[in-house]
Simulated scan of single mutants.
Amino acid sequence: MHSPDPIPVLVRRLPGNDDLPLPGYATDGAAGMDVVAAEDVAIAPGARQAVATGLAVAIPAGFEIQVRPRSGLALKHGVTVPNTPGTIDSDYRGELKVILINHGDTTFVVQRGDRIAQLVLAPVTRATWLEVEQLDETARGEGGFGSTGVASGENLSALPG
């Protein structure tokens, strides 16, 4: 079930992009909106590319848009969003671009109009720092990477936090 009151997000099609669809939900239960490419690009194996969408947005204060990969591109072609999730801040007004990386072994071709990522509107909770001399104790303590789910007796103390 989706939120009862959709949050309006202002969107502007940049010149020359009137033929492209606005981001949209593929199904009633979809969390992300598919966004399409506004240009043709070829991404070589191991390469990254910022792909234009032909859109600029005005995200309401207190929200962000998260840019997430499309699972089909990742599974079938090894193409994903490297900084997942990417964040578009509410005060950004430039063209929305999607950074793609090709982890596959062949060049991946993006054609204008191809679905390249998903956009998720999400609330932002801002933090403040409260500096203290000591933190409370927990069962995990300072156990770092891979320390949970380790059989007792294994020592991971040599691993960095």
Rank of each mutant, 00 (worst) to 15 (best):
Q111L: 11
V98H: 01
R112E: 12
A117G: 09
F108T: 07
I116F: 04
T107V: 13
Q111P: 04
G113P: 12
Q111K: 14
L121H: 01
T107F: 09
L96R: 03
G113N: 06
H103T: 14
G94A: 08
A122K: 04
T87V: 14
S90V: 01
L121Y: 01
R115L: 02
I101H: 15
I101V: 15
K97Y: 01
T87Y: 07
D105N: 12
Q118I: 07
A117T: 10
G94W: 03
D91A: 12
E95W: 06
R115A: 11
I101R: 15
T87F: 07
A117V: 10
A122T: 12
R112C: 13
G104T: 09
E95I: 09
R93G: 06
I88D: 01
R93T: 12
G104S: 03
I116H: 05
T87P: 02
V109A: 14
I99E: 11
E95M: 04
L121E: 01
T107G: 10
K97E: 03
V110A: 02
L119A: 03
Q111E: 13
R93W: 06
V110M: 03
D105I: 12
I101C: 14
H103E: 14
S90L: 07
N102R: 00
T87D: 02
I116E: 06
I101E: 15
T87G: 04
S90H: 12
N102M: 00
I99T: 14
R112Q: 13
Y92K: 08
G113V: 03
R115Y: 05
I99L: 15
A122W: 11
G113F: 10
R93Y: 11
D91N: 13
A117K: 06
V98R: 00
V120Q: 02
R112G: 13
Y92S: 10
L96P: 08
N102Y: 01
N102D: 00
V120Y: 02
F108P: 10
I88N: 02
S90C: 14
N102F: 02
H103Y: 15
T87L: 09
F108A: 08
L121R: 00
A117H: 07
D91W: 10
L119C: 02
V120K: 01
I101N: 12
G104I: 09
L119F: 02
D114Q: 04
I116C: 05
L121V: 04
Y92T: 08
A122I: 07
L96N: 07
F108M: 08
L96D: 08
L100Q: 06
Q111I: 02
V110H: 03
F108I: 05
Q111F: 06
G104N: 04
E95Q: 12
L96W: 02
I88P: 00
V98Q: 00
Q111T: 13
D114Y: 04
H103V: 12
D89E: 10
I88V: 12
T107R: 07
I99P: 09
L119M: 07
N102V: 07
H103L: 15
V109Y: 06
D91G: 12
V98D: 00
